[in-house]
Amino acid sequence: MSSRTTEDFREAVRRHPFLEGLDPAFLDAMVRLGVERRFRVDEHLAREGAPANVLYILLDGKVALEVGAADHPALTVQTVGAGEVLGWSWLVAPYRWRFDARAVKPVHAVEIEGGALRRLLSEHPDWGYQFLLRFLPVLAERLENTRIQLLDIHAR
C-alpha cells in the first residue's frame, strides 16, 4: 500500500461519522491502531460465541447481524453499513460476539484491535469519555430500533 493510498485511507477514517470531530490526538491514535480490511459477500466478520477482539468502523458495504440456532433458521435482525460501527463485545467481559456478522455487500472497513483500544481508553480517561459519548447513542439507537421491531407493527 503506497503512502498516498494510506493517507487517503486515513483521511476517510477521520471523516467517518463515528470519529469525525474527535480530539485530533485521539483520532490519530485510533487511526494508528486501525487496520484496513475487506470482506467479500457471505464472508463473516464475526461468529457468535467466538472471542470478540475487534471494533469495525465500516467505510463501505453492508453487514447482516444474524442470530440462529440448530432448530431455527438464521434470522437477520439488522443490517449495518457505511458510516456505522460494528461490535461492542470487545469492550466488556467476557469479550465474545453475541451474534454472527456476515457481509451481504462487499465490505471495506477499519478493524481496531479491542485490547489495544481498551488500553488506549484506560490510559486516557478523557478520550475514554469522548469515546463512550459517541458509542452510547449508537447503542441507544439500536436498542430503540429493536424495540420498534418488537412491536411488529406490520402485523395487524
Partner: peptide, 23 residues
Amino acid sequence: VTVDAAGRDWYGDVGVVTTRLPD
C-alpha cells in the same frame, strides 16, 4: 427497501424504516 427481519437469502437492508433515514 428494508425489512424488519429476513432469512439468509435476503441481501438487502434489515431494520425498521427509520434506520434508513441517516442515509
